[in-house]
Design a protein around this nucleic acid. Sequence first.
DNA 1: TATAATTGCATAGCATGCTATGCAAATGGT
DNA 2: ACCATTTGCATAGCATGCTATGCAATTATA
Lengths: 150, 150
Amino acid sequence: MQMVASVMLFDKEDSAGYLINHLARLFARELQDRIQPLGIATGQFPILLELWNGDGLTQRELLGEIDVEQATLANTLTRMERDGLIKRTKHPQDARAQQIWLTDKTKAIKADAYRAALETNQEALAMLSESEKVIFLGLIQKVIGTMRSE
Amino acid sequence: MQMVASVMLFDKEDSAGYLINHLARLFARELQDRIQPLGIATGQFPILLELWNGDGLTQRELLGEIDVEQATLANTLTRMERDGLIKRTKHPQDARAQQIWLTDKTKAIKADAYRAALETNQEALAMLSESEKVIFLGLIQKVIGTMRSE
DNA sequence: TATAATTGCATAGCATGCTATGCAAATGGT
DNA sequence: ACCATTTGCATAGCATGCTATGCAATTATA
């Protein structure tokens, strides 16, 4: 149970991976607190964002817009249908596929949900200057680009 | 199924929360690929980092160093014990508590595991200049600080 | 036009993480 | 000494995300 600081090979507080993971969980919790009253959850958010831009997409089409695996999307959609957040209808041309539609419930909360997400981001970045915010987003996008093409 | 770009209230590619979540998953997958051969998983990493600095801690003491909830830690420790990554012994002074110890297995992989984490970070940030790396980590830390105190 | 390959989804099984809750051991106050 | 509170940990139940696998419908090929 002894340690010497100079021997530490790795400080998690200076590890990009560790910090990003921690920050992602803080964001998720904050957003969850804000959207739970609307009856939706964090993992459903990206899907709803797509559908609010226009629904009737197939799962495959949705998948092209959202950065999760197919199985993750399928499971989330199942929960959303269970909770009355979406409807699935047979695709007219392809018997394997289904079209995914918003329900009245999710149509109704669009504005509140956007506000929740915007406020979460705003509060999180509140201590950054405008230029820092731009730099921050730019750096994240750059690292994502690096990691996606590995 | 129509949309007009000018009407979009929210672009997820400019949302800090969305980007951070995506990046965190990319990091997790990259790290997982590297440490799976060592017989460990991503959620165990912060715990092992602590224990490699000195073991024999109680769960409570570990919790003070790691940014997860108590129940999350307890569950992860249970899996680690199951997999022979740690041992738990009764605390000599407190019958409620246990001390947590590394096993030969986890002692042996320390260097490889550090290397895996360092390489993950290095590759992820490879497209950033040295000063950008410093700025990036600093901004993340700043946002974490903001969100923790809300 | 059969058959092979591909595509669209679903399911199984797991890890990580959360909130809520329970419980026994320890501590504090009277 | 007693009882109330606090502490340390475990468990239940859930969402999110992953890999691996299966399967039916479609498409491409021989």
